[in-house]
Design a protein around this nucleic acid. Sequence first.
RNA 1: GCGCCUGUAGCUCAGCUGGAUAGAGCAACGGACUUCUAAUCCGUAGGUCGCAGGUUCGAAUCCUGCCAGGCGCGCCA
Length: 557
Amino acid sequence: MFNEAVTQGDDPGAAAAAHAHGILPSADFCEVVLEEPKADSHGDLSTNMAMQMAKTQRMAPRKIAEALIAHLDDKTGMIAQTEIAGPGFINFFIKPAAWHPVLTAIHDQDGDYGRCDLGKGMRIQIEFVSSNPTGPLHVGHGRGAAVGDSTANILKFCGYDVQKEYYINDSGRQIQTLGLSVYLRGRELIGKTVDFPETCYQGAYIRDLAAELLARDGQELFEKDEAAAIMPCARYAAEKITRGMRADLVDFGVTFDCWFSEQSLYDAGKVAADIRYFREKGLIYENDNALWFKTSDFGDEKDRVVVRQNGQTTYFASDITYHKDKFERGFQKVIDVWGADHHGYIPRMRAAVEACGYRREQFDVLLVQLVNLLRAGQPVAMSTRAGEFVTLADVVKEVGRDAARFIFLTRHYDSPLDFDLELAKQKTNDNPVYYVQYVHARIASIYRKAEANGMDLGGFSTDDLTALSTPEDVALIKALARYPEAVALAGAAMEPHRITYYLMTLAAAFHTYYNRHRVLCEDDLRLTRARLHLITAVQKVIRNGLALLGVSAPDAM
RNA sequence: GCGCCUGUAGCUCAGCUGGAUAGAGCAACGGACUUCUAAUCCGUAGGUCGCAGGUUCGAAUCCUGCCAGGCGCGCCA
């Protein structure tokens, strides 16, 4: 949009014309790239093409710039002024009216403003959270959920066909441990003395689960021996915990298209089949009584065990099958969102994907750094081992969904995040979520005021827009014009924080405008209509951007 | 020891994949509410972009080597 508004003024025709007149020796022109200078004094738009072409044209950049400007054909008359600056930048100063079509586009496209076709319909899957069903979700999972969900929203908006998936690790040793933990707590409840090992889950929720199971099925289960009781206990607990996680995620505004069970891969015999398949291909071999996958053939530093000496498969074995299965379901690209402490796992997973015959670029991992939970600047003690942690549900309950989601997205996912519970609740400038939401509410409030005053706001025509000519008008429209680019960049890099930052910048531009100019001017309805047109566009973009983050846009605060 | 990530204002962080005088919020200081919500705005001050080289018209950004911090290096997940 930024470029579209003015590109007609700066076409490659200038270079061609200069060449035709014999001023530029080479017909090899570079692409015209317009960018927005950081400093206002450098104009609204600038291009470095004169510098880019210096080599092929064998001319000084400033000379080339002169030639380009001389042959510029400003068909639309939008250029107010051009200048050559610095080593050879060409700066364009644009007339305020040139920006007005941005507003028309926003009103016409409404919720689709900023949408693009980066993905060209590519089928992409993003898997996130995927917490083990052995305890409630904590704040770290919350960040993963916010990043994954928002990234999915952005990718959809960028033309990808996105599926969100949650992988349930409902198989293996930790499920056994979960079952044992519940079983032992249950035995305590029926009066047996038990030795509760440190390796078991210590949290109080385990005792609650045991009590529920006891109430439902009676003492019988807990009187059985360990071997017979563990699986029923595990199944009940895992299912209950998974249901709880799902509910917590719904409260957090996160839903999934698919909940995929690890156990289902075993039940369908897929893990065993894949092991056979890769053995036949020579990618799995036996050594020391275990089966190894030749990940080192695909860039991993060493081979990895898939079946242990004791005959049990490793987590990696089912992960290979799981990722193979994802591609077989037709996804052209697969994204995993992991905690940063799992980064050592990437090379082997990537190796497995390549061994399955897919390209490197088809698999990507977003490593989300950890969250430091604070309360008024002081660290909140969190120990998973002792079963003491602040759950996601607690955080959402205390600070609200919007504040939690927004704060999780105020940093690049790759950067550690301080999450201060007191700050998140504060309704001040320190809390960016309110700063942005306040814009939406303020604009809604202006409409309420207009209605209360009985103002006649009908009869808007695009001619009214000529009233928008102050520097603040232009600055605000330019901020709106940057939205599509922000979306495209956020999509291309899968970085939701770019949307967050964009919104804070737009909000700042609006608040400045609000303090400088009155929107409702009883004595100038034409100006009022024009300004309402402007701020409604702001409101739409704020609402659209917040929606990408999964944050609401309130009409009143 | 090897690998990945990080190092930017007193603090917390951006920096559009190489552009001009490196930005924002907080904290500090000084201002603005008879006017559409002050959950706001305006101004001042604050920097060896960890260090040293290299690549080129041009580097916070790319390359190499150091320094410091975090994480990971299991037949755990």
